[in-house]
Design a protein around this nucleic acid. Sequence first.
DNA 1: TTCTTATATTACTAGGTAGTTGTACTTACT
DNA 2: AGTAAGTACAACTACCTAGTAATATAAGAA
Lengths: 109, 109
Amino acid sequence: MIELSDTNASAIAERFKALGEPMRLLLLEALRRGECSVGELAERTGGGQANVSKHLQVLLQQGYVDRRKEGTTSWYRITDPQVFRMCELVCGGLEQELDRKRKLLRRRK
Amino acid sequence: MIELSDTNASAIAERFKALGEPMRLLLLEALRRGECSVGELAERTGGGQANVSKHLQVLLQQGYVDRRKEGTTSWYRITDPQVFRMCELVCGGLEQELDRKRKLLRRRK
DNA sequence: TTCTTATATTACTAGGTAGTTGTACTTACT
DNA sequence: AGTAAGTACAACTACCTAGTAATATAAGAA
C-alpha cells in the first residue's frame, strides 16, 4: 500500500499536478462521454491541436487516459473512472470553501 | 452542485494544483497528527521557515488548512479530512500505474 | 527600551510550463 | 509517385513558481 511519505510524495504530487490544469480537466470531462480523437477533443474544448496533443501526453504519462491508434487518428479514453470521484471530492471542498468565504464577506458588512 | 464545466474548471484546477507539490503534501501529512506550528512543520518536513510559511499560505487560501494565532506563533490544522481520501485515491491510481508500467517492462524482455 | 522569538513578506534567481507556430511523420487515397 | 488528413514533436515566448536570503512585523522577556 502506497502512503503519503517523504519517498513518494513527488510521485503523488505529479499525479495531482496533472489534474491542476483547466484544459486537462476539460479534456477529461470531454472524454467522459467516451472514446474521442484528438481533433474532436480540440474542437470540444476550443484548444489548439498541438496544445491538446501535448496535454494528452501528460494525462497518458500519468495513466489517466489510454490511447489506441487507428490509421492516422489516435483514440483516447479514460482508463480509471476514479478520477471523477476525485473531481467530486475537490468540487465538494470547493463548495465548502465558497460558503466559508461568503460568510466572511457577510460578517464584514 | 458544482460540476466540471468550462466555467469553473479553473477554480477546480487551482485546488488540484495546491496538492501538486511534494512539500505541501508533506505538510498535510505532518498536520495529520494534529495542530502544529510553523517551526515544528519546518522541522518535521526539513524545509526552510520562509518556504514552509509560503506553502501554508497556499493551503490556507484553498481552504485545506486553518490557522489560529497565539502570541507570536501560528497554529495550523487540517480543516477538511477529505483531502486524505483524495490522497488515497491518487495513491491507488499510482499503484495501478506502477503495476502497468512493470508489466510493460516485463513484456519487453 | 532593548533583545529575543516566531512568523510573514519582499526581492531575487533558476527552472518549469502553457500556448503558439512551424514542421516532421505516418497512413490512406488517387 | 503525389496529395491530403491526423497527430506528434521541436523551438520559441511569456508567464508562473519553488526555494533562498534578507527584512518586516508582532509579541513577549529582560
